[in-house]
Structures are given as C-alpha cells and as structure tokens.
Design a protein around this nucleic acid. Structure first.
Lengths: 237, 237
DNA sequence: TTAGAAAAGATTGCATACGATTTTTGCGAG
DNA sequence: CTCGCAAAAATCGTATGCAATCTTTTCTAA
C-alpha cells in the first residue's frame, strides 16, 4: 500500500502529534476510497507502514473510530467503516438539520477574502468535473466536500465545524459506496448558486439552496439494500 | 429502556473496555462539578486512582479530550476544560440549531413507553428542585441534561444523539461555570410543556418551545468576561 | 536582595514485552 | 471428501521502561 508515501515528516507535523498526522493520512485514504470499506486496519500493519509503534497507530485508529470512519471490534481489530443505508440516511438527515443553519451564519460573516477562497475552491472543483476516470471522481467527491467544510469554517462556530467535518467525511464514504454516476456536475452548479447567495448576503436563499442541495445529493444515492442486510453482513470481510 | 440502563457500572462495564468505564466516571465527575474546571488530570494520578496503568488512563483522557470536556497540552498534561464565554455561546448556538429539529423528529416517534420514560425523568428532575444545597443543584443540572438526552434518543438518529451528548455535557460545564442561581425551576416547567407537545404530536409547538427553552437557559448565564480574558488566561493554573 | 542559570524532579511521548483472545492451520476420524 | 478438534499463528489489551520535555528548586553572582 502506498498510504504512507510521505517521505519526510514535515516540520509542522513533526512538531505535532504523530498519531494525528497518521489519522489525517488514513482519513484522506478512506475518504478517497483508496482504502475500501471493510478493509482491515491492524495496529501492527499501520504501525509498520508509518514506521511507528503500535501505541501510536492504535491512537490514530481510536481517533478515526470516534469520527465514525473506522469501526473497532474488541480483540479483533479495526476496519474501515461500511455504513449501512440506515446510517447513510442518518448522515444526511443530520446534514439537512445543520447545514442550512450554517449557511445562514456564514452569509452574515462573508468577507471579500472568503469570496476569493470560495472562488478558488469552485475552480478546483470544476477542474475535476471535466476530467473523467476513477481518480478524478475521487478528487471530485473530496473537492465537493471541501466546499462544505469551507462554508462551515466561515460560519465561525468551531463546534459545528467539527460536526461538519465528521459529517462530510462520512458523506464521502456513503457517496463512494452508494453513489450513482453522473451526479456532481449538478452539485457544482448548486455550489455556485449558494456562493452567489452568500455574496449578496441573502441568507434565506443560501439556506434554502443548501437544503435542496443536500436533498439532491441524497436523491442521487441508491440506498436500496443490495441482497439484503443479512447477506451483506455475512459476506463482509 | 433508554434511561434504565443508567444503573451501576458493575458487571457490564467490567466486561467492557476499562478505558470507557473510566471515561464515563470522569465525565460524570466533570459534569457534576466534582472536578472543577482547570483541574489537572495527570495520567499517573488517574491511573492509580482507578488502579490501571497509564496506558488505559491515557486512553480515557484522550476520549474526553475529543468530547471537549478535557483539554490536553503536549508534554504538559490534561486539564478539565474551562470553556470561555465565546465557547459557551457556540455551544448554545449549536443547540439552538440542532435541538428544535430533534424535537420535531422525536414528536413523530413518541410511543407510550417513551411517555412513561419522560414522566419518570421529569419526576426525578422535580425532586432535585425542591431540595436545596450544592449537591442537589449538581443533580439538578445533570437531571436537566438527561431530559435532553432522552429526547435525543427518542429522535432515533444515533449521529445526532452523539452530538447532543457532547453538547449537553459541555452545557453542564458552562452552566456550572457561568450559571446564576434560581434558574432551573422555570426550566423544569418548560420541560413539562415540551413533553405535553410531544405527547400530542404537536411537532411545531415542541420545536418552538425547545428553542425558547434554550434561549432561556442561555439568558440565565452571565457570560461577561470576569476581569478580562487575558487576566483569566494568566491566572488559570 | 534579586536576576539568572543550572540541576533535580515530575510528567508526558513512545517503544517494547507479555498474557489473553481470536483466527487460522493441520490432521485424523467418520 | 467433509467435518471436527487441537495446536499454532496472529492480533489485541495492558503494563512497564526509557528518553524527551516541561516545571520547580536551588545555587551563584551582580
């Protein structure tokens, strides 16, 4: 696996917790689907990959399990989460509840610098959409999530920001699992509309657009159980 | 079945993760104000107290730091969180955003068993209010939080439920820090009104009542900085 | 007397070791 | 050939040890 392809520990992350750095890399790998749901992440393996002891690897896995990206079973190990359709629905129900409010808060705090950041974000997003292929699709899902994270950071509530980080990460997993193909071009245009509403300070419109946007994302999922949940459970791993 | 499982942490949690059991006890102590904000929680001390190694104590502290109840500083240790007024405002802003939606969801899922559980909860809450004294006041804060947690469990979204657990725990800390005295009797009656709306399936009313209730809780805080934030920062441990 | 530096002490970060539990493998009986 | 069972391997849970870092104390010099 090329998950730990970071050569030098950057000066910044060397000063920080190594477990946190490993968590970030693993999270990226999970959200990008380089690690498939259900993949076993043994402490020893993660430790050797990142050249740390099991202690540190274990701490990283524990953090991911708090975020819901990894499920751990006692005396068995850690596995990349494999969210059920029901979990997927709850993720989007949570987003429907939270994100319109975040959009309203953000609309009242937009600065020109924020607008610039959003424009750059949307440009990047657009680049991945014109490309095709599995790699571009992964980047597209990630970039789409980054839009929502940027919005949450503008809203200025660190607690809600952390909630959104978790929800966006889990959404990426869900989209990768249950997503249909040709969705996100429409998502991109909706992001642009939302930015427009934010720029003009039209909070109600931004909020309503966000709600529709989330609905559209969820509507483009195929949440029917494939072959029944029991079978799925039995076959996984 | 949702409030009944708050029994003694004896046989069940001995079989479970010990770190989790320690986390629960520490969280209760923090929420109950038996551990004052700013108190140092050294790994060794926690370990000896609970008769486990530093490894296990460390894991428990890490969990609490994820929940925002404990703040850890590298190479310095863990301390009971000391939320700033700004953090307090963000906690309640988050609750204003999330809890009305939870009330709506819960209103659509109430069963007679839920009603019984709520009645029992409110009875207990009332008992602590007639009593006076610091111990009763702590129990009162905790019982008041339990009402909101029960509501979240009825709503049936495990993700939102976890968010609410964090928000309620942090709220308890904030109330203990910034709360004025004679607040909660009014809170109790509001809880009863909310239950009434839930029983009759009046979701909009339950939602509106919840919003007012949160406003009232926050209004009864004194969030003025005491002596300036710089001084506060300088003096605290 | 006080400022500053050096040593002592305490605490965390991390690695490693060992027992416990689970999973896999190997082998013989049916 | 399949099934069951026991031994082996793998993996986790936890304790402990050592080095690094931070804090406190102590000692010296202006």
């Amino acid at each position: 696996m090329n998950i730990a392809d970071q050569t030098f520990p950057a000066a910044d992350s060397a000063n920080e917790d190594r477990a946190q750095a490993i968590r970030d890399q693993l999270r990226d790998a999970i959200v990008d689907r380089r690690l498939a749901p259900g993949t076993k992440l043994s402490e020893g393996e993660v430790g050797t990959l990142f050249e740390v002891s099991r202690t540190v690897a274990r701490a990283a896995l524990q953090m991911l399990s708090f975020e819901g990206l990894v499920r751990t079973e006692r005396n068995r190990g850690a596995f990349v989460a494999n969210p059920s359709p029901e979990e997927a629905r709850q993720v989007f129900a949570s987003r429907r509840l939270i994100e319109p409010g975040i959009a309203i808060a953000a609309a009242g705090r937009m600065t020109p610098a924020h607008v610039v950041a959003f424009k750059a974000q949307l440009d990047e997003e657009g680049r991945f959409i014109v490309e095709r292929g599995p790699s571009a699709r992964r980047s597209e899902i990630k970039a789409s999530g980054d839009f929502h994270l940027l919005l949450a950071s503008v809203a200025g509530n660190v607690i809600l920001q952390r909630f959104m980080e978790e929800l966006v990460a889990r959404s990426s997993l869900v989209i990768a699992l249950y997503g249909r193909s040709g969705i996100s071009s429409c998502g991109h245009s909706e992001h642009m509309q939302i930015l427009e509403a934010l720029e003009t300070g039209n909070a109600p419109r931004a909020s309503a657009l966000m709600l529709h946007h989330i609905d559209h994302i969820e509507a483009d999922l195929d949440l029917r159980v494939r072959g029944g949940p029991a079978l799925r459970q039995a076959l996984e791993l």
